[in-house]
Amino acid sequence: MGTATEGTAITPELAAKAERDDLLTLGVEEEYLLADAVEPRAAEAVDAVFAELPEHLRNVVQHEYHRTQIEVASPPQLELDDLAASLRELRSEVGAAAERAGARLIAVGTGPAAGPNARIVDKPRYHLMRERFGDLSPGQGMCGTHVHVSIPDPETGVQILNHLRPWLPVLQAATANSPLFAGHDTGYASWRSMMWERWPTVGPAPYLQSHEHYLTLVADLEASGAMLDEGMLYWYARLSASYPTVEIRMGDVMPSADDAVLLAALARALVATLLREVRSGVQAPDVAHPLLMAAHWRAAHDGLEGLNIDMATREPRPAWRLLRQLFDYVRPELERHGDLARVTLLMGRLREHGTGAARQRAVLARGGSVGEVVDWLARTTRGQDAPEPI
């Protein structure tokens, strides 16, 4: 629910290099759950973790809505290597601070283990949200991934939002990482997605006529009381209220830094591909909102291991095949940004091991408990079970 911190502003040098080479910058925000050091339940330890953070991280780490959560924001980057290094450092440093505070950092969409509903963080904005919207966010916290990709101007950004709409369900499927909630398998690959949809402004962005149309909708939604401010515009893709970026934000937080890097690289290549279409005058397909909602539901239910909807034919197809189709579509921009080799390898790993939801269920299928799932998540979050870094 938070927004990027001041430490994530792009430097003038990086902006100049991006403009000179006609490349897009990207950054990632990740929300994590804090678990008890011994038990699998969530722990209201965020203030204790903050007290243990190194000073140099305090401008890129922030509170989230619940006291069981913490959020990080990588600096904007051009090179995927730099983004990967930043995310690994953030996970490692915040994870170490959590251990010093008697907790564990886990990258998971919802609390896998049973436990009491978490209290909200003591901030005026969060208290106002709780007062107005009531118990729309029960449980131990919902944790997502937000990818920021640079755009030249808001008007172009709105057109990119239109073009993004058909592609986001399959990216959501690839992020699925919350099959367990309160100690049982929900039957969904992303239970966070289903819980998140309770909020009144969550869902696909509408088809937008212009930036003026976008601003009018934001103002109307604020006036309606459905959100306090633009920060509560929870569309699956939106214009950042703080930075010149498109923010893609429909996915669960993913188990490993490599998972997040793959999502970020695909998102940047997709935005870059769509930017070229906008500049060429290609009209975005006006996909029917109910079909988009069905595709996002399917992504939450099946993840990448089942089916999703091919927006061109409106027929169900294997979600993995649709992700491969997206990869082929954006391949020229992956190559132009220097990301193709890394993304090809990460796609292979995703195909082999499955989404976070599939990997959590694999732990259970081997006779493991919810506690062992949380143990696996804690190790994977900090890269302790991961293959060699790419």
Score class of each variant (00 low, 15 high):
270 L>S: 03
222 E>I: 15
137 S>T: 10
178 S>Y: 13
45 A>Q: 12
147 V>C: 05
5 T>S: 15
279 R>H: 14
363 V>S: 04
201 T>Y: 08
263 L>M: 10
9 A>F: 07
24 L>T: 08
339 D>E: 14
87 L>Q: 06
135 D>A: 13
238 R>Y: 01
192 R>T: 08
272 A>C: 04
379 R>D: 15
216 T>N: 10
379 R>H: 14
15 A>W: 06
134 G>L: 00
316 P>G: 00
1 M>Q: 10
208 L>W: 09
370 V>W: 10
346 L>F: 10
149 V>R: 00
326 L>E: 11
268 R>W: 13
33 L>R: 06
92 S>K: 12
389 P>K: 12
356 G>V: 02
383 G>T: 08
314 R>P: 03
68 T>D: 07
59 N>T: 15
9 A>G: 03
274 L>F: 11
291 L>Y: 00
316 P>W: 00
24 L>F: 13
372 E>Q: 13
62 Q>R: 14
219 A>P: 00
285 P>A: 06
15 A>Y: 04
89 E>L: 14
106 I>F: 03
271 V>E: 05
388 E>N: 14
68 T>F: 12
144 G>M: 01
350 L>S: 09
101 A>D: 05
213 H>E: 15
352 E>M: 04
48 A>P: 09
275 L>Y: 03
280 S>A: 15
308 N>L: 11
360 Q>N: 09
163 H>G: 00
285 P>V: 11
208 L>S: 05
106 I>L: 07
214 Y>A: 11
190 S>I: 01
384 Q>C: 00
6 E>W: 09
66 H>L: 11
282 V>E: 15
361 R>L: 08
9 A>S: 06
189 A>Y: 03
152 P>Q: 15
301 H>R: 15
206 P>H: 12
267 A>R: 06
5 T>L: 15
89 E>P: 01
295 A>Q: 01
195 M>S: 12
310 D>P: 02
163 H>K: 04
359 R>W: 05
131 E>D: 11
217 L>K: 08
224 S>W: 15
382 R>M: 15
73 A>I: 01
285 P>R: 08
305 E>L: 00
261 V>P: 06
22 D>I: 08
104 R>W: 07
66 H>V: 01
284 A>P: 00
299 A>Y: 00
32 Y>Q: 09
174 A>E: 06
381 T>P: 02
79 E>H: 10
368 G>K: 10
390 I>D: 02
306 G>L: 02
139 G>R: 03
260 A>I: 07
310 D>F: 13
373 V>A: 10
285 P>T: 05
20 R>H: 13
122 D>M: 09
209 Q>N: 06
24 L>S: 11
297 W>C: 05
114 A>Y: 13
114 A>C: 07
343 V>M: 10
260 A>R: 01
384 Q>I: 01
357 A>G: 04
46 V>Y: 11
122 D>Q: 11
375 D>H: 10
340 L>N: 12
